[in-house]
Amino acid sequence: MNKQLPDVLESVFQKMPHIVFEQQNPRRLRVKIRADALSTLLELLKGRAGYLHLSAISCVEWPESDEFELVYHLWSYEVKTLVSVHIYIPKKPGRYVSVYDIYTPAAFFERDIHEMFGIYFEGSPNMEPFILTEWYGPPPMLKSFSTLGYVKETFEWQDYSPQWLQEIQASGGGIVE
């Protein structure tokens, strides 16, 4: 046990089974927990330790694993520590429960993750596309989606040889690729 851990957080963590935490620096705490225990932990953090601010929800994809990593960044105006809660959810079927009823800002981040990674959050108020309204391809932030490959598939190269370029090429110059 780290001595720098605030008492409130220690009392919250004692209530949670299977919790792994690591202090990155005095104001950053990294927590790993099972996916089904997330809402309990968030409710405890919000109710007991004053973690009122959901700073962000980030999604990380690891191609070699069959799980998505979701990271919930929470900030407490009282304890003044940032807790990053890491959970892992299976890529198939890619559904998870929304935390909108605990944190209102979650709606934006969950909507964003849904269109960029394809994870559906049940209970989130709006899962319609926000940024990619006219995009019908696969979720673009997945590592399997290659931007260069998409460009090569969708667009064609056009030959470009104006008169001035032909003159340069005739005198031995040209475009270096």
């Binding site: 990294r30 700073s55 960044h73």
Partner: peptide, 19 residues
Amino acid sequence: GDAYARTEAQKGELAFYVV
């Protein structure tokens, strides 16, 4: 590793999560 850096931008809290 991963890091969550945040600063006070003119508009509010700005954060980067970098893995």
